[in-house]
């Protein structure tokens, strides 16, 4: 990322999973910079992944998805792991912002999604809403935590810690328009090499109006635990239907009450 970081411009991550080597440098750099203590170490018996999930202590999580076929394949034709450094997507239409009742979740001058720790009251509505299982409550503060896109670093003109630490440039940080261009070039290159399964996720507006942190995937989004475009709905999609069903019930309930209670000489 060559250009200076300017408020008022949209920034994000382009995470190219095809070149992730699963080193977890991003996880470490994130914890280091953001002073996250981390969870107690646990053996999850699940591939090389002992982080497990994104949560209040893990704002980057390298997913190891076992994609090894049961039967052996020809030499040079094997598949091993899908690796993906997952993070808050800083969604353009963010489900978490959609429902937060306190206004704690704001969009910053860098167009990232940020939880104000002194405003959050720990109601957990954003947790119920985020379709990517990004947010979790920190038991010590009682508030909701997630990736800040290193808001403090951006304010000082520094790129986020994870992107800086990534040795393969699987995680690229920059102005969104530049990242989208780079992603298009990379996808075209992979397709021309016959890697037809490669696809971009969140590059266009099909999921949540576009993701500021978008991905190049080597399989379908579902294989990575990401909802596909058909399933990427904002919580507020259910407002109208839910209220209409409640309203119809209220009208019928009132009529039922009137029928049962209406004035009569005897009862």
């Amino acid at each position: 990322m060559a250009s200076a970081i300017k408020p008022g411009e949209s920034y994000g991550f382009f995470t190219d999973t095809s070149i992730c080597i699963g080193c977890k440098a991003c996880e470490v750099a994130c914890k280091e910079w953001n002073q996250l203590e981390g969870n107690d170490p646990k053996f999850l018996a699940d591939s090389f992944d002992n982080t497990g999930q994104l949560d209040d202590q893990n704002w980057r999580h390298v997913k190891f998805i076992d994609n090894v076929p049961d039967q052996s394949v020809d030499a040079g034709n094997g598949k091993a792991w899908l690796m993906m450094s997952d993070v808050c997507k800083h969604c353009k239409h963010a489900s978490c912002m959609d429902v937060c009742p306190t206004g704690a979740i704001i969009r910053t001058e860098f167009n990232s999604v940020f939880i104000q720790q002194d405003a959050c009251n720990g109601c957990r509505n954003c947790i119920a809403a985020c379709p990517y299982s990004v947010i979790a409550i920190n038991p010590k503060t009682g508030t909701a935590h997630k990736c800040t896109l290193c808001y403090d670093r951006l304010q000082d003109g520094l790129q986020p810690a994870c992107a800086k630490a990534c040795p393969t440039q699987s995680i690229q940080f920059g102005p969104l328009a530049e990242l989208q261009q780079a992603a298009d070039v990379r996808l075209a290159a992979l397709h021309s090499q016959g890697v037809t399964q490669a696809e971009l996720y969140g590059r266009d507006d099909k999921v949540y109006g576009g993701l500021n942190a978008f991905f190049l995937l080597m399989d379908k989004p579902e294989a990575y635990g990401l909802p596909n475009a058909d399933n990427a709905g904002l919580p507020s999609r259910n407002d109208l239907g839910g209220y209409i069903a409640a309203l119809i019930t209220a009208v019928l309930g009132t009529i039922a009450g009137i029928v049962a209670f209406r004035r009569r000489g005897t009862s």
Binding site: D98, V99, C100, P101, T102, G103, A104, I106, Q116, D118, A119, C120, N121, G122, C123, R124, N125, I137, T141, G142, T143, A144, S236, D239, G242
Partner: peptide, 29 residues
């Protein structure tokens, strides 16, 4: 609530520079 003393944040916006009451019509909470 995770921070019970902030129950009133449901009604009052404490975001610096954006004072006022909180009402998000799309959020049933």
């Amino acid at each position: 609530l995770g921070v019970w003393t902030r129950f009133w944040h449901m009604l009052v916006n404490v975001t610096p520079g954006d004072p006022g009451l909180n009402f998000t019509y799309g959020s049933p909470m």
